[in-house]
Write a protein that binds this DNA or RNA. Structure first.
Lengths: 226, 226
DNA sequence: CGTACCTTTGACATTTCTCAAGTCCCGTGG
DNA sequence: CCACGGGACTTGAGAAATGTCAAAGGTACG
């Protein structure tokens, strides 16, 4: 019963309701990575790069999910964002990594040199534009996240997280959540027990349904079917 | 007793300890605003632009402080960031404002058209680079903020906020905080009473000293004198 | 079939929020 | 010069949300 005239590229952000700036699929950045990128594979939980390391490469997720995180001395972790297939990450203005990147799942990434990328961008206005856009996308998502951490309770955070993950994975209805409860907790600024309890509560309220711990069915309030 | 050989432009972020990417003072962006910008003035608490409005202009703070914020239907507010003299704000990839901007203090801003700015950037690699850098700066600060909201308690948030404000205002020792307790609360994801109580507690612990509600003396752990 | 890890649940501690009064400060007008 | 009013800030008491520590289920994989 899907409406065939549904405008598929005007999806809206689950949190703000603003239109998503859709991930660039076949732009100049994607092409550069596909033509000139070196491929690397990582197992789940491998470190891709570390905080403070030289930031001399830029990455694009080909397959899998990557997390960007920071640690405190006492072991607390904050996951700034997750990157999905097609996302560019690890591009920084400064020369040192301001956070580390780790594989959430087994994944494949494409790598190009930072200097090479920037040199090209200097000659190629389209590419420069794509670079800037990529930063703006990130900034936009970060703003949503900030709002969530600053103003939302546990239930709203978890629900927004599931919706965001569904959006980013292009899932409808049932989402296979690739990250652990601990990852979710460290992304939402909660602890693992609170995340677990909140999920239980959402389930008992009928807001979501679970099929195993990692498979979530979002409720009928999904805006595509509203 | 200031060390004369102190490298003045390698200040470090109060939260992460990473070097700040110092605000561009005389770069191509600044020049563009100074040559071609229209000047506007706003009184404290005036709205500069609203969420969802067309994003057809870009701003640079000449004098005063500006806040970028989002609201929920039920009136809660999240201040994403504050902009100080020299900061560029209101530059978005999309065509609609994703947040609103308001004057914290009386302030003066310089305005250029978005289309004009982008057209120039397309021809001028230096300018394009400055644009990108400006987004990266914002992204970097946002990451720090995310960490704060996700993982820090009230005392750490408030302290980090004072340090950040001191840095951005180039204050040493005594900082004149330009924003109200409510602004601080909405930036730190706390409520106003918690901010107030936390300040009282920090004062009683000797971590800070107050001279009136808005003037804060940061303790001797200030890294410049470490 | 046992082990290891991830997830859930329970009981209690702690932090932060809410609501309700105060207090302080500053500009205005008598 | 002083009283007044209003906004900003502070404080208090109790409620609610979240965190902590401990232990019990579940599930996958050898």
């Amino acid at each position: 019963m899907l409406n065939a005239t549904l405008p598929t590229d005007t999806r809206h952000c689950a949190v703000s309701g603003l239109p998503w700036i859709a991930a660039e699929a076949r732009g100049p950045l994607a092409k550069l990575f596909e033509n000139d990128g070196a491929t690397a594979r990582f197992r789940a939980n491998d470190e891709i790069f570390a905080e403070e390391e030289a930031a001399d490469a830029v990455y694009r997720v080909t397959e899998g999910v990557v997390r960007i995180c920071k640690f405190t001395e006492d072991g607390r972790r904050q996951i700034g964002e997750f990157h999905f297939s097609g996302d560019v990450f690890g591009l920084e203005y400064g020369s040192r990594r301001s956070a580390c990147a780790e594989a959430v799942t087994d994944c494949r990434v494409s790598i190009v040199g930072r200097a090479q990328l920037l040199a090209r961008a200097r000659r190629d206005g389209e590419l420069a534009n794509a670079l800037w856009r990529s930063s703006c996308d990130a900034l936009h998502r970060m703003h949503e996240q900030l709002f969530l951490l600053g103003r939302a309770n546990a239930a709203d955070r978890v629900l927004a997280f599931f919706r965001m993950t569904a959006d980013r994975l292009n899932s409808r209805g049932v989402v296979e959540i690739p990250m652990s409860r601990q990852d979710i907790a460290d992304h939402l600024g909660l602890n693992i027990e609170t995340v677990s309890r909140t999920i239980t509560q959402l389930r008992s309220e009928g807001a979501i349904r679970l099929e195993g711990a990692r498979r979530v069915c979002l409720g009928a309030h999904d805006r595509l079917f509203a």
